[in-house]
């Protein structure tokens, strides 16, 4: 029985399995954090100034179109195999989602709200940090959530990129028995759902209360 074998494989190799899970999580975390560090400031700046918006949106779409395996392949040619290689590919995977969501969240604050803030004498920085970014939080978090799930569900390609300390050590090695494959695939799915659920809780916690209320009147 494949299922029994799969379970036995996990039960017999706890250190290896936990190590691979930890490796997958660390790799994903580092990639997502880097993507956030680039995408949120950039998206906020573009959304706030409304300059280069077309460039950013199209750039994000181009990034989104890049096949991860192709990035890994070209990366091997340009900067070799290893952690950096897979990390770059994963950052490119998550970046466009977070970038567009941040941009849209900031840019789509009601024009009247921004004008009122300006008219009241709030500086550009105060408008960005006190009005636009809080307004964008739900969208930014949604982008981070989707990006993280993508990254976790793709991080196993680390195996192909020459960084084996992840679930990719099994998933990208088709010579191994199906039972091991099944075990790691299920783990990968569970991991993605768990992190998604966790981020949903974070999202609820950081969303300003006023943003959750459905208006009673169409004012």
């Amino acid at each position: 029985m494949v299922l029994v074998d799969a379970w036995r494989f996990v039960a017999d190799n706890p250190a290896r399995v936990l190590g691979d899970i930890a490796g997958q999580l660390v790799l994903s975390l580092v990639s997502v954090v880097i993507a956030i560090a680039i995408a949120v400031p950039l998206g906020a700046a573009i959304g706030h100034t409304r300059r280069f918006a077309l460039l950013a949106v199209n750039g994000a779409n181009v990034l989104r179109a890049l096949p991860t395996l192709a990035i890994i392949a070209i990366g091997i040619g340009l900067y070799g195999v290893g952690f950096i290689n897979i990390m770059v590919a994963l950052v490119i995977l998550a970046l466009p989602l977070i970038l567009t969501n941040t941009y849209v969240g900031v840019a789509e604050v009601e024009p009247g709200t921004v004008e009122a803030a300006r008219g009241m004498g709030m500086t550009g920085w105060q408008i960005l940090t006190q009005v636009e970014l809080p307004h964008a939080v739900p969208l930014i978090m949604a982008g981070i959530r989707t990006g993280t799930v993508f990254v976790i569900a793709t991080a196993y390609l680390a195996g192909t990129a020459g960084y084996p300390h992840t679930l990719g050590s099994v998933i990208t090695n088709p010579t191994l028995p199906v039972s091991q494959l099944l075990a790691y695939t299920v783990i990968a799915v569970l991991l993605a759902f768990a992190v998604d659920g966790l981020l949903l809780i974070v999202q609820r916690a950081v969303t300003p209360a006023g943003m959750k209320i459905v208006p009673v009147t169409a004012a």
Binding site: V178, L181, T185
Partner: peptide, 17 residues
């Protein structure tokens, strides 16, 4: 959503049998 979250490679390989 479940289909979407399965690592594609694992999906491929598990379908082989």
């Amino acid at each position: 959503t479940i289909l979407y979250t399965i690592p594609v490679l694992g999906f491929f390989l598990l379908m082989i049998p």
